[in-house]
Write a protein that binds this DNA or RNA. Structure first.
Lengths: 344, 344
DNA sequence: ATGAAAGCGCTAACAC
DNA sequence: GTGTTAGCGCTTTCAT
């Protein structure tokens, strides 16, 4: 609320030095807690600095010290759908990482890149803006991530563990999650189970593996007509669901790759006169808060979002220390609620 | 996945210069799009740089150019409850701001500070780490925010507009929201309406003003027994709600200060044998996605989260240009769903 | 069109 | 203990 660009009047060490009647080195020492300085001068300088709201310029300090405490967290976006950060799961993961980084004394730079060009995220590292990268999701570009890792960019990816993976990933047990959900439905007597999710995405592909595996164990084969490759984006997903429900494909169970997708399915089913769980049992994924409050409360695969941030950050830090960081798969479990209860 | 801290081998301009057989100045010119350079040399250098994944060190560049494109977004946390970023509304706002900043070419630094010491956020500016600040919520420290603004820290606060406010705020119309919710309940014949929210927080205080105003217009006075000063934190809120429901205070309507709070109320009421909306009509606040899917779907005050990011960022940018930025109040509206339907 | 040199704000030898 | 000086990686006069 001033009329002059506040930019120009930022204090610097030389100003403090002049006002205190000492040299800049003395100020530097006073403010950096050096031992070889008179206690009284330090007090005086510290107080002066504080009273003027002076803080050491971190850009200059970092340059001089060759140091940096910034980690970039990259949330890819789908350029086609111009999708924004809105998926509650992504947001939660970001929150979890933010907490973990704060706890460990790092700064977090939040960036967005085109999901088709994950490799552009490396510029954040190459330019020295960040000393490490966290990328949320592999999307369709396992290869780009591999290339980044191959040239030593410190990067941890939230996502699935894939064969021939050079980068470090941290993620929920996707195969296990898909399996648990599907097996539960089978155990409740469901036979025709829809799988809802775009298997082009590695995480979804892995969940699908669990789905297929559960079917096989029960003696069934996967049926391509029951696989609905919907994106995470709600509007498009809903259209696909409405088509499915309006069509003549019969099904009595459904495994979705997010809670939001599952709830869209519930709504679509309702519109088409089918009841959950009576006609179709539905299982979500993620266990976001809304799964508790929804109608019906959602049986869903719980992802350990709270832990995720710490795991991701710890993996990245060890990577940056030069250690090899093995991919980590975090345990998931099924939370039973009403959309796919025991005793269907 | 290497065994050597990758830190040391970051390329710099001198390396490129050496490899290209030119001076650093030439490289600098080539990479910065200067006109006084041979087109062929530029091509050659650009290609060399690209092939080596070289990017200009932005720390050094910023220092030299006295420039910086980083905006800090600060999400305060309640140190007592050790609360993490989990409130879906905060997360959404952060997402919206992230999108707005990305669109406008700024970097976003996400920080957390103790909600009791909002003023510590100013260090991000004083140290030159960020050239502008966005703070999510006023919490209990209007005064600290005023002090920051008074000393020219470019800051925009998401929150309510208060008297004697020196800083620029952007926020939903809280008085209007509280009013709309309460009036709706009154129009549906509800008479004893609980207000759920900690009026120590300015935004909540404003919503309470709207609540009181609606009561007055209908000829009623506020009843202190119907005001439940719960925090946004779920566990504590739930305890207070259970106490209310178990007690002998009668009420047939409830206005909550977040959707999560409203849904906790619904659950608490259920546990105590009361039905929503039949016995108690409930209205939430924010209109998060879960409000659509919940049981019952929540009548709630819609906040324009999608717009918020752009408004906040634009206000901040104009502030940084040295213009005076007036506080902005964004319109809210009531979304009618089943928890407080028309025709109670 | 290109190179040499100064300097952005800071820290760390190295003097004294 | 404190000041002087060099230099972190870059851009930009100023020469040539």
């Amino acid at each position: 609320m001033t009329a002059t660009p506040a930019e120009h009047k930022r204090l610097q060490m030389a100003d403090i030095a002049r006002l205190a009647g000492v040299s800049v080195s003395t100020v530097s020492r006073a403010l950096s807690g050096s031992t070889l300085i008179n206690e009284e001068t330090r007090k005086r300088i510290e107080q002066l600095a504080r009273s003027l709201n002076y803080s050491v310029n971190l850009g200059a300090q970092n340059l001089r010290l060759q140091k940096n405490q910034t980690i970039a967290v990259v949330v890819p976006f789908d350029a086609q759908s111009r999708q924004h950060i809105s998926d509650p799961f992504f947001l939660s993961i970001v929150g979890s990482i933010a907490d973990a980084l704060t706890d460990r004394g790092y700064d977090m730079l939040l960036s967005r890149v085109d999901a088709e060009r994950l490799d552009t995220a490396a510029a954040l590292f190459d330019s020295g803006k960040a000393i490490g990268l966290v990328i949320i999701g592999q999307w369709r570009h396992h290869d780009q991530l591999n290339a980044m890792a191959a040239r030593q960019v410190p990067v941890v990816v939230w996502g699935g563990q894939l064969p021939q993976q050079l980068y470090c990933s941290v993620g929920g047990d996707n195969v296990g999650g898909g399996f648990l959900a599907t097996r539960h439905l089978l155990q409740q007597g469901r036979r025709r189970i829809v799988f809802l999710g775009d298997a082009q995405l590695p995480e979804v592909q892995l969940r699908r593996q669990g789905y297929v595996q559960a079917l096989h164990e029960a003696g069934w084969a996967a049926d391509a007509r029951l696989e609905l490759p919907v994106p995470f984006e709600i509007i498009a997903a809903r259209q696909a669901l409405d088509r499915l429900c309006a069509g003549r494909t019969r099904f009595d169970g459904l495994v979705a790759c997010s809670d939001l997708l599952a709830l869209q399915a519930v709504q679509s089913l309702r519109v088409h006169g089918r009841e959950v769980p009576r006609d179709v049992a539905v299982i979500g994924y993620d266990d976001m808060p809304l799964a508790t409050y929804s109608d019906p409360p959602l049986t869903t695969v719980h992802q350990p979002v709270g832990l995720a941030g710490g795991e991701i950050v710890d993996a990245l830090l060890s990577l940056m220390r030069g250690e090899r960081a093995a991919p980590r798969t975090l345990p998931v479990h099924l939370v039973l609620r009403d959309s796919a209860p025991v005793q269907a």
